[in-house]
């Protein structure tokens, strides 16, 4: 069962359209797997829509707003309705991806995001999602059975959304659909016994904390 959800503020920003694409996609993927969050999002959307389009009491007193004059609504209406074309919604294609000879179906949310090259280190494989969001890096991270990421912390935030399989760390077991947001105050050492595929978003390299693992800090950069 899914135990980890986006917190309220994140859902709110998601609905407002204020999150970067990487995190928006993550919330959407999670909500597709989580009826509870889906319902919250629907409620928030109804509410924001309602308040956005309410006749504002104050509006009636704004008589001449110059800006409103800069746009010729009648002309716009005419232009739009000139064509009777409708948009036929395309059928959504289900895309899949292969890691370590296993095929995974990808969430359709990711359909139009370009995938970069896949890089491998030991039991980890990472495919970059080319979202071009500066310091925010988004990837698909695959861990083969028995693999893991050495004890590390985060300088920024690290979101892990489990798309398939499971992993565990000091804090417990995580399953498909879990939305795990960590920041610099967390240290963990995730291990996947059966293997897993994660959607990850991070805004800084991971930082390995323990003794010999410090030598692995290049892996931190690899995962980020």
């Amino acid at each position: 069962m899914i135990k980890h959800h986006p917190k309220f503020e994140l859902l709110q920003s998601f609905v407002d359209g204020d999150l970067p694409a990487s995190l928006s996609a993550a919330v959407a993927i999670h909500a597709d797997m989580c009826a509870q969050c889906q319902k919250k999002i629907a409620l928030l959307t109804d509410q924001i829509a309602e308040t956005s389009f309410e006749e504002n009491f104050l509006d009636r007193f704004i008589v001449d707003d110059e800006a409103v004059d800069t746009i010729d609504f009648d002309k716009m209406i005419e232009g739009i309705t000139e064509s009777s074309d409708i948009d036929i919604s395309e059928t959504k294609v289900k895309k899949s991806i292969e890691f370590a000879n296993k095929t995974y179906n990808l969430p359709t949310v990711l359909n139009n995001i370009i995938l970069g090259k896949t890089a491998h280190i030991g039991k980890l494989s990472r495919t970059r999602l080319e979202l071009q969001e500066d310091e925010i890096h988004t990837s698909l991270l695959h861990i083969e059975p028995g693999g893991g990421v050495p004890q590390h912390t985060h300088k920024g935030f690290e979101l892990t959304l489990l798309l398939d399989g499971s992993f565990h760390d000091e804090h417990g077991e995580y399953v498909k659909g879990d939305f795990i947001m960590l920041d610099g105050s967390h240290t963990h050492n995730p291990i996947s016994a059966e293997g897993c595929l994660c959607y990850t978003v991070a805004n800084d390299a991971l930082h390995f904390t323990q003794g010999i693992n410090k030598l692995l800090n290049p892996i931190g950069a690899f995962i980020y």
Binding site: S89, T91, K92, V93, K94, K95, S96, I97, E98, T103, L106, T108, L115
Partner: peptide, 9 residues
């Protein structure tokens, strides 16, 4: 969304 067709990346 409508029926999904399959396609590999």
């Amino acid at each position: 969304s409508m029926v999904c067709e399959s396609e590999s990346f």
